[in-house]
Design a protein around this nucleic acid. Sequence first.
DNA 1: CGGTCAACGTTGGCCTGGCCAACAAGTCGG
DNA 2: CCGACTTGTTGGCCAGGCCAACGTTGACCG
Lengths: 146, 146
Amino acid sequence: METSGAPRRLRGTTSWLLGQATTHAARLVSEALGAVGARRYHYSLLAALDEFGPASQAELGRRGGLDRSDVVATVNELAEKGAVERRPDPDDKRRNIVSITPSGVAHLRHLDRVVGQAQETLLAPLSAAEREELVRVLNVVLEHQG
Amino acid sequence: METSGAPRRLRGTTSWLLGQATTHAARLVSEALGAVGARRYHYSLLAALDEFGPASQAELGRRGGLDRSDVVATVNELAEKGAVERRPDPDDKRRNIVSITPSGVAHLRHLDRVVGQAQETLLAPLSAAEREELVRVLNVVLEHQG
DNA sequence: CGGTCAACGTTGGCCTGGCCAACAAGTCGG
DNA sequence: CCGACTTGTTGGCCAGGCCAACGTTGACCG
């Protein structure tokens, strides 16, 4: 075994790097959202509605990778805020149709700015080119996974 | 406001991208570790010991960003497995000195491979150059944050 | 020397995020 | 009409990250 002298640079391992970076980024975003009284799920759900339009809760869950049960809670909270409207689907009595309200859109815009700012501080040390490359690479990774 | 017609590409937002990528990466690593009965903390702590040598629990916590209380639990579990040894510090009765055992080193090597494999599947769609660049950029970001 | 403050290990608890199981109500294909 | 499936909902589990408190011990300063 060559575990004798020099300390190994596990920290330099990509996997660990990823772990560090991910937790860091996740915390930044969560904190930013928490500061304005929102959670990740709120943002995810509002964004999905804004992007793809009204949908049933199950469909919303599929869009954002949320569990059905979590969609219930999130829609409840957003509905209380008036950011979202939940009404029964006349064509399928099992379903609720969830749609974003104008107030919800405004709220989403706000969250957009907040999250964008968090990302700004995170990526501060990177040049414009590096950021672009990072975004591109991350997109590749994500799309590949489905 | 130009929020009229076309759906916006929120998903393309870097912040959201980061969110997606982070959760995805975190899950991959956690699953890989869980498959061999380990957790993030175990890996983190073993790596810190292997890299920097024996230390008190508080010091270990600082190295890996773990809370003191979590270090206690993790050391307990690792000690039961025989991967780690905890003995009182003769020079400072407040402290315990935690050191990694040969078996622990072997265990760590195993975890290294497991985590590396997870990362391999994550980064599969990337070219060697892209991976290098990704690692470099992530390092920059992390170092900048401290 | 005594007293004060800080660090240590430990216990216990909280909140969040992600997940799963079960259920009743509803839909749909055969 | 019957079985298989979907939907919304409730309840619960486990992990991760954090914080508060406590008793013990050490360092420092008057």
